[in-house]
Design a protein around this nucleic acid. Structure first.
Lengths: 342, 342
DNA sequence: AACGATAACGTAATCGTTTTCGTAGGTGTA
DNA sequence: TACACCTACGAAAACGATTACGTTATCGTT
């Protein structure tokens, strides 16, 4: 019942020639006669011969598979990145092996090792929230396996990187609130470790400083999971204070939507009494009512760029394994999208 | 600079024994002396030996990689499914190679072939909108490669399947509209081919029939891309008719949100003048204002179940390649979530 | 006739691992 | 002494494909 997968051997035996000739015939080597080529190709088609990529991978020491490690996948930004990665890979003849870290450092480490064992040609990753450093990616470096970090990166780690200017984006968002008349600004920020959470916080501070506004530590809240409900809870806290904030910049749109929900429940009008800006430009930001102003974060382009850098590095090393690679950090443009929440 | 990946050969040479013994020592074969084992293991650890999964895959004829082919990934439902698949795979020691069909049949076919060549152990797929039949998956069947279809399935194709009862879900949604007093019901349905779009349409009809309501063909609209903006456009058409519909059931939440946007622009009150029910229970359904009633579609569980079925089939065939496999169709529970839009 | 060129194919090594089947040397027993 | 038996290892085939290098046979040239 179970059909046998045709190999070169099968073809060779039926034709009474050797595996070598079959291989050469299929690849149009000049030292194979036209007749033999014809016969081989015909039989190959008939038996539906398809080369075994694993065997080729062993021989060439190249799998044409890249690994992707991300914190989560049910996430507008990350799924966009993946889409970008995949469409570029498809074009270039690579496949994508995807793994999740669930934002846990230990799991992330395990996934890195798995990728290493699977002998992927390279890895694209965004660090787990628990991972301040990319130290556990070092094994890739040691064995010359290209790595591209995006979004949640470790600046000190020597490799290609793709990101947006989070600090500038946050600055734009905050200054927008100020320009709209906000005086008392709050920020619901991301976790301690991820660099982009820090950068967004810094951008927030930059804007305050530029406009001579004081930074009130009680108006800074730190998310752990960066969810809608965290945004909701922190907003409830912030909006129960004696001196209410009149503008909130949130680390993501998810959190921003949580803020909007909380404000609505407390009958605080957005944007009149409170203005909100999120970050990422995810779909919920346009769908929520009032729609949420946000900072655009081009997920698809980030993915595409990361894949391009990775494949370039892979193929450069392939051509000359000893040429020292110059690492780039590509920063993609970002901008403010103004909506009803401001 | 570039470090060399340790192989059995390296260890064997340094220890003056053969590859055979090294392999056996690492796997605790009884015919290797305790001393040798100790020495081998020590050196293996020191040199960070990790077996090459490709070589093992060749030998065992098993890659421990499964293929996943889905129409798109920037999609709440599909990304949830992937999450479910991956977490199950992780537990069972499998990795996931993911590919997108972009809802195109030709690309889907290409991806199936790629999966075949990569020698994945099995495939999980949801059909592209363009694919009425799963005929192009036949090659997997011919070579005894397990396949599990989910969500957008081909009922006639013999393989394991995981889905929800779309017809019943649609019936629930529609009856809910009727129970809430709607008399003139519209349905914005999915494309022609996907079975679940047909089933949802059928469920819509079932409810009308049960409650002796007439089916007005002018109130049925057919999406191509199933996007928010399609929902918006169709809603504008429907709400410009002489006899307005008072209830709309949409094939997805995306489309439902489009309807809500259109109604709001036209100053039609939801739920007073118009009630809307979506399908999928995606995040935007809770975020939109008014929040959208919907039918729950358990993406994570569907993914988990699909992975479980697939891996069970893989391992059954592994144990006994000739045992005829009985295919299951698992239907997961679904239910209505009532929100502000009704 | 002798040599070289060329065409067309095969040999064998290789990638890294697994596993079956030896086999050499030693010990124990009748 | 002869045989069985055990211990601890190695040889070799196998998975499927690639490729540097050999090896024939045939023909042309001088």
């Amino acid at each position: 019942m179970a059909q046998h997968r045709t190999t070169l051997k099968d073809i060779a035996e039926k034709l009474g020639i050797t595996v070598t000739s079959v291989s050469k015939a299929l690849k149009d080597y000049p030292d194979i006669s036209a007749e033999t080529k014809k016969a081989v190709k015909k039989l190959a088609k008939k038996l539906n011969y398809q080369p075994d990529s694993r065997a080729i991978a062993m021989k060439r020491n190249k799998s044409n598979i890249i690994g992707v490690i991300i914190p989560e996948i049910v996430h507008y930004f990350f799924s966009n990145v993946i889409q970008g990665i995949m469409s570029y890979c498809d074009q270039k003849g690579y496949q994508a092996l995807i793994a999740l870290s669930n934002n846990q450092k230990s799991l992330e480490k395990k996934q890195v090792n798995l990728m290493f064992n699977t002998r992927v040609d390279g890895v694209i990753a965004s660090l787990a929230n628990e991972s301040a450093k990319a130290k556990h990616f070092k094994i890739l470096k040691e064995y010359n396996i290209p790595l591209v970090l995006f979004d949640k990166i470790d600046e000190r780690f020597e490799c290609n990187k793709v990101k947006i200017d989070d600090r500038f984006g946050a600055f734009l968002a905050t200054e927008h609130l100020i320009n709209k008349g906000c005086k008392r600004l709050a920020h619901i920020r991301g976790p301690q470790h991820p660099l982009n959470a820090k950068e967004r916080y810094n951008g927030f501070c930059d804007a305050l400083k530029k406009h001579n506004l004081e930074l009130d530590p009680t108006l800074i809240k730190i998310c752990e999971k960066v969810t809608l409900s965290e945004g909701y809870d922190f907003a409830k806290e912030l909006l129960a204070m004696d001196a209410l904030p009149d503008g909130i910049f949130t680390v993501t749109d998810q959190v921003g939507v949580g803020v909007i929900k909380a404000a609505q429940e407390m009958d605080i009008n957005i944007p009149k009494q409170l203005k909100v800006v999120g970050f990422s430009d995810s779909q919920i930001a346009q769908v929520v009512k009032p729609s949420l102003s946000t900072i655009h974060q081009p997920g698809y382009e980030i993915g595409e760029t990361a894949a391009r850098l990775l494949i370039e590095e892979i193929e450069t090393r392939e051509a000359d394994s000893e040429s020292p690679v110059g690492f780039k950090q590509i920063t993609l443009d970002t901008y403010l999208i103004e909506r009803e929440s401001t």
